[in-house]
């Protein structure tokens, strides 16, 4: 059965195990590629892990002027090809999920490749292997559905851009198939939606 990657930010406990494990992956060579964000540190302990969502039509690859980002037939969007990446950071700015990182010393972009040395041989990615709360899940959809609530969603709408991803995020059963990302939400839940001054 095919494995899927499902993220559930609401379950993240901020333990940073994924950050440490990520750097130990054979393809990452000591550099952690996962992001762990504090949502609003002054008022909440909520954190969120962000792996590459492995878009079906990756914006990062489309905006790369050097053709340095390649996608495998299995949908994995790889980190930049070292001989080609010219360090322009187009991908860093264009990714709707804020995933690619820029290493200034190497003048190069790096990003999550779903631990391709592991997942290509049937193992779980490092982050999902160590995540204690299943905020990062890698396994079959059937297994996930058997013991979890909610619905894995993989279609996102950013303004007029629709993005379909190979990585899913957990949302309530009532969530639409295509989720519109609202940018006007404040960080603290007690504050109701307000317009952000542009």
């Amino acid at each position: 059965m095919e494995n899927v990657f499902i993220i559930d930010p609401a379950r993240c406990i901020g333990c940073q195990a994924c950050v440490q494990a990520c750097s130990e992956c054979g393809t990452h060579r000591g550099t952690s590629m996962i992001h762990l964000e504090y949502i609003h540190r002054e008022s909440t302990i909520q954190t969120t892990p962000q792996v590459c969502m492995h878009c079906e039509n990756p914006t990062c690859a489309q905006v790369c002027p050097a053709d340095a980002i390649k996608q495998n037939p299995d949908g994995i969007v790889h980190t930049s090809l070292k001989p080609r990446c010219i360090g322009c950071q187009n991908c860093v700015l264009a990714c709707p999920f804020g995933v690619p990182k820029y290493l200034s010393d190497a003048d190069q972009m790096i990003k999550c490749d779903m631990c391709y040395d592991r997942t290509s041989v049937g193992k779980r990615p490092m982050c999902a292997t160590v995540c204690p709360s299943e905020a990062l899940y890698f396994g079959t959809l059937e297994e996930w559905k058997a013991r979890r609530r909610g619905k894995p969603v993989n279609q996102w709408r950013f303004g007029r851009q629709t993005v379909t991803t190979n990585v899913y995020m957990v949302l309530p059963e009532s969530a639409p198939k295509e989720v519109r990302i609202d940018v006007r939400l404040k960080d603290v839940v007690s504050i109701k939606r307000e317009e952000v001054s542009v």
């Binding site: 609401a10 992001h35 909520q46 969120t48 609530r149 995020m169 939400l185």
Partner: peptide
């Protein structure tokens, strides 16, 4: 969306999930 920094884009995914769930907590 280009006027939003990459860090805020990462946070927005979690914030949108939280809104959909209806507050803090998980499914």
């Amino acid at each position: 969306y280009q006027d939003i920094c990459p860090a805020c884009r990462r946070k927005l995914m979690a914030i949108n999930q939280r809104e959909a769930i209806g507050g803090h907590g998980y499914l």
